[in-house]
Amino acid sequence: MKFKPLFLYAEQETGKDILGNPIKEFVQIEESEGLFSSWTSKEIALDVREITIHNRKILTPCSKELLEQAEKVKFEDKYHSINEIKGDDTNRWRIIVVNRYGSESL
Rank of each mutant, 00 (worst) to 15 (best):
P22Y: 00
N21Q: 10
E13H: 01
H54I: 09
V98S: 02
E76P: 02
L19E: 08
E68W: 00
F7Q: 14
K2N: 13
N91I: 11
L19V: 05
L8T: 06
F75Y: 08
G34M: 03
A10Y: 04
P22I: 05
W93I: 12
N21I: 10
K74W: 01
K16G: 07
T90R: 12
A45F: 06
Q28V: 12
T90W: 04
D17Y: 05
R92F: 13
K78Q: 13
P61T: 15
I23W: 00
T60D: 04
Q12E: 15
E104M: 08
E31Y: 08
I95M: 01
Q28K: 12
K4Q: 14
P5T: 07
S105E: 10
A70I: 06
R100Q: 15
A45K: 07
A45W: 04
V48F: 08
Y79F: 15
F75A: 06
K24D: 07
E50G: 12
H80Y: 08
I53T: 07
E11R: 04
E30R: 14
K86C: 12
W39E: 06
V27R: 05
E50C: 05
W39L: 11
E13D: 07
H54Y: 09
Y79H: 07
K4P: 02
E71A: 10
F3A: 15
L35P: 00
K42W: 04
L8M: 11
A45C: 02
Y79V: 13
Q69H: 01
S103G: 09
Q12K: 14
S63V: 09
K4I: 08
K16I: 15
L59E: 06
Y79C: 07
N55V: 09
F26P: 05
R100M: 12
D17A: 10
K2Y: 01
L46A: 14
S41Q: 08
H80M: 02
I18Y: 10
Q28I: 14
R49N: 14
H54T: 10
S32M: 05
L59N: 04
G102A: 10
G102L: 03
R92G: 11
S38E: 13
L46D: 14
N55T: 15
Q69R: 12
I58P: 00
L59M: 12
R56Y: 00
V97S: 00
V97K: 02
L19K: 06
D89H: 13
E25Q: 13
E76N: 11
E30I: 06
D89Q: 06
N99L: 04
W39H: 05
L8C: 12
T52N: 04
S81R: 03
E30S: 15
I53N: 03
E68I: 07
Q28F: 01
K24H: 05
F36K: 11
S41K: 05
E30K: 15
A70P: 02
E25D: 11
E68P: 00
S63E: 06
E104I: 10
A10L: 06
K16A: 13
G34D: 04
R56V: 09
I85T: 09
I85K: 01
N91C: 11
S81Y: 01
S103V: 14
E84I: 03
